[in-house]
């Protein structure tokens, strides 16, 4: 389906909607990286900026939703077009929530490095950085997959998601040893676990986006199937 609609205006409108999604994706990724930067640089001001910028993501979310409703009303899409609009609607909420997760990381910076608070040791924070890079890559891949409508790339996201669980387990295990070493770390530990949890959700949203892309292409809803089945299904197409 390389060729466009007979009504080119419809194509332009879809194009505009797609660009909104890509912008949102980029923004969500930037939010996460900046939140991590603020964490690394112990820069609470940057963290506040990240939190403030989250509203931009919310605006884009409502803007996209309006656009989708308008398109459905005006163009009465069917088949692929219909699936695309519905999936985009869901991708938008996933991106918005991913942004929320990034905001939580920024909140972590504020908690740790606000003057008067006791900052955690760098060692505890390395895991967050590692995991954040990993999920950030997932979302990047999802967005590439979306802009190219490429199911292979979507498959990569899912495969990364499979490993995400294992990584989470080992991080928790490692953190546990830190607590056993020094129980005073328990306060930081909870914050860190919450941060990791946010990052894991971030990755989950990236995986959801990948499954929405598969839905656009094939009409199959793979959000709730086991990951290996997901991969099998992608392989089929």
């Amino acid at each position: 389906m390389n060729e466009g609609h007979i009504v080119t205006r419809f194509d332009q409108e879809l194009e505009h909607l797609n660009s909104l999604i890509l912008e949102m994706g980029q923004l969500a990724i930037n939010q996460l990286t900046e939140a991590l930067d603020s964490l690394a640089n112990e820069d609470t001001e940057q963290a506040y900026n990240v939190i403030a910028r989250d509203s931009k993501l919310n605006d884009l979310d409502s803007q996209s939703n309006d656009e989708i409703i308008r398109l459905i009303a005006k163009r009465q899409p069917v088949a692929r077009d219909l699936r695309e609009l519905i999936a985009i609607g869901k991708i938008v909420s996933d991106l918005e929530r991913a942004g929320d997760e990034a905001r939580k990381i920024a909140g972590l910076t504020i908690r740790f490095f606000e003057p008067g608070n006791k900052p955690p040791s760098n060692e505890i924070l390395t895991d967050i950085h590692q995991l954040a890079e990993y999920v950030c890559k997932m979302l990047q891949l999802s967005m590439t997959s979306f802009s190219e409508q490429n199911m292979k790339t979507a498959g990569k996201v899912v495969r990364r998601g499979l490993k995400l669980d294992n990584q989470l387990q080992s991080i928790i295990r490692r953190l546990t040893t830190f607590i056993m070493e020094d129980p005073r770390n328990i306060g930081h530990f909870i914050d860190i676990v919450l941060g990791i949890r946010a990052l894991e959700r971030f990755g989950g949203h990236a995986k959801n986006i990948a499954s929405h892309i598969v839905f656009i292409q094939t009409g199959e809803d793979l959000r709730h199937v086991a990951d290996d089945e997901f991969l099998k299904s992608i392989g089929k197409h």
Partner: peptide, 20 residues
């Protein structure tokens, strides 16, 4: 099915208002 997920690309092209 035809209007949400047609199998043939000609069907899809026609109902979504594209060239085949």
């Amino acid at each position: 099915i035809i209007f949400t997920n047609p199998s043939h690309r000609l069907t899809e092209g026609y109902i979504t208002g594209r060239f085949g």
